[in-house]
Simulated assay, not measured.
Amino acid sequence: MTLEIVSAGPMLTVQDAGRFGLRHLGVSSAGPIDRAAMALANVLVENDPAAAALEFAGPAGSFRCTRPLRFAVAGADCTIRIDSRVVPAGESHRLNPGETLTIGLPDSATWAYLALSGGIATLPVLGSRATHLRSGLGGIGGRTLRAGDILPLGEDRPGAACLRPESRLVAAHPFPDRGPIRLILGPQDTAFAPEVIARLTECPFTVTPQRDRMAMVLGGTTLPAAAGHDIVSDGTVPGSIQVPGSGMPLVLLAESQTTGGYPKIATVASVDLARLAQLPVGSEVRFALITAAEGEALWIERQARLRRILAALAPKAEGVLTSDYLLSCDLVGGIFDPEEVMRPIMPRSQMEQAG
């Protein structure tokens, strides 16, 4: 029960929820850049939301399996092919031995996730299968995946249904949110003059090509620190916005170091960190300030929304129209063309023959 990597894109890694409780030892969590997207991909194939899946930026590559499995891609729309047949992101599909799955570039986003029924069963390292590239932990040798790698898979439930969201998601993501990225000031905001603090919300920033799983650099607006850009190293977390001597803010992500010696002007609210990380190079970024209490309330509400979306996944039609499938559909919600219902299960030629 394995998955073969036939070809691999440049940032294909194994990720699960991450390793926690080790930051005091200098070990950051790793795990997915976009947790909600990975959770959606996993639950679409009936995995635990935290199960190990594949994260990719750029084209994912191509894959073959040694047993029938279900797969789902979430986080962004991508061109997905089973041999020559194109299938959509944001719902699960079947892949059989002898077929080749090929997944292209995420559209209008940076990171996406491929989940496989049963999950990826590489050996845990420090309690997690997550790949931490900078320290060489987890996954396969702590590195990006490459052609020829063989990934073990966990136990699957034969014959289980493929799933889809209750209503189609925008860009195969549970949260197509818009608006400014919300920040909480500090802990070293007093190192910056009031007019520099004001730039956070008054001026646009730009996503630069300087980015990886550790951090992303923003350009377009600089944030000079009146008190200098060197401090006694203290703790950092994903979302910390460090400002080095260049004045270009550096937003820490999943593989962030656990301490740092640059002043931190603010922290990205957890509810918006993945949305910022998903922005393609060249995107304009605007910020808004909120309190820590507001950020906590937004995160709690967002997690409740995610639970509702995952709980509402429904079986999709496969081969025949079943009563379970029909009951899961909105049959009075504006269907004017019978092909809208029949397209997933019956080719046009068969529909024409059926009259």
Score class of each variant (00 low, 15 high):
residue 134 R to Q: 13
residue 178 R to G: 14
residue 180 P to E: 04
residue 143 R to K: 13
residue 133 L to D: 06
residue 179 G to M: 08
residue 176 P to F: 11
residue 138 G to T: 13
residue 158 P to S: 05
residue 150 I to R: 15
residue 127 G to H: 05
residue 158 P to K: 12
residue 128 S to D: 12
residue 166 E to I: 01
residue 170 V to R: 03
residue 179 G to R: 04
residue 183 L to K: 02
residue 166 E to L: 02
residue 125 V to M: 14
residue 131 T to C: 10
residue 173 H to S: 15
residue 131 T to A: 14
residue 162 C to H: 00
residue 155 E to F: 00
residue 168 R to C: 07
residue 138 G to I: 11
residue 186 G to F: 09
residue 180 P to I: 00
residue 175 F to A: 06
residue 186 G to L: 11
residue 162 C to Q: 02
residue 177 D to E: 15
residue 128 S to T: 05
residue 175 F to Y: 04
residue 134 R to K: 15
residue 157 R to V: 13
residue 131 T to W: 07
residue 165 P to K: 10
residue 130 A to Q: 06
residue 122 T to D: 05
residue 160 A to E: 15
residue 142 G to W: 02
residue 135 S to I: 10
residue 140 I to N: 01
residue 146 R to G: 06
residue 178 R to H: 12
residue 186 G to N: 13
residue 152 P to Y: 11
residue 157 R to T: 15
residue 122 T to M: 04
residue 184 I to N: 01
residue 130 A to E: 01
residue 123 L to M: 12
residue 151 L to V: 03
residue 138 G to D: 08
residue 158 P to W: 10
residue 176 P to M: 04
residue 148 G to H: 06
residue 123 L to K: 07
residue 184 I to G: 06
residue 149 D to E: 09
residue 138 G to Q: 07
residue 180 P to W: 02
residue 146 R to P: 02
residue 165 P to C: 05
residue 181 I to D: 07
residue 126 L to F: 09
residue 177 D to G: 14
residue 128 S to L: 04
residue 144 T to Y: 01
residue 125 V to P: 02
residue 172 A to G: 07
residue 125 V to W: 14
residue 174 P to G: 14
residue 160 A to V: 07
residue 122 T to G: 01
residue 159 G to D: 11
residue 135 S to H: 05
residue 183 L to V: 02
residue 143 R to G: 07
residue 169 L to V: 05
residue 144 T to K: 11
residue 167 S to P: 00
residue 157 R to A: 15
residue 122 T to V: 15
residue 184 I to Q: 04
residue 136 G to I: 03
residue 130 A to C: 06
residue 174 P to E: 08
residue 130 A to D: 02
residue 182 R to C: 03
residue 147 A to T: 08
residue 133 L to W: 01
residue 143 R to E: 11
residue 150 I to V: 15
residue 144 T to S: 01
residue 168 R to P: 02
residue 147 A to W: 14
residue 164 R to Y: 05
residue 136 G to Q: 12
residue 173 H to C: 12
residue 186 G to Y: 14
residue 143 R to A: 15
residue 133 L to S: 00
residue 171 A to W: 02
residue 171 A to C: 13
residue 123 L to T: 15
residue 147 A to F: 10
residue 152 P to C: 09
residue 141 G to M: 08
residue 176 P to V: 06
residue 162 C to T: 14
residue 137 L to D: 10
residue 176 P to G: 13
residue 186 G to H: 13
residue 123 L to Q: 12
residue 163 L to Q: 11
residue 176 P to D: 09
residue 153 L to S: 00
residue 147 A to Q: 07
residue 150 I to K: 14
residue 171 A to T: 06
residue 133 L to E: 03
residue 155 E to D: 09
residue 164 R to N: 08
residue 176 P to Q: 08
residue 132 H to I: 01
residue 166 E to W: 03
residue 158 P to Q: 13
residue 172 A to M: 08
residue 159 G to S: 10
residue 139 G to W: 10
residue 134 R to F: 12
residue 132 H to C: 00
residue 170 V to G: 01
residue 185 L to N: 13
residue 156 D to T: 15
residue 158 P to R: 13
residue 136 G to E: 09
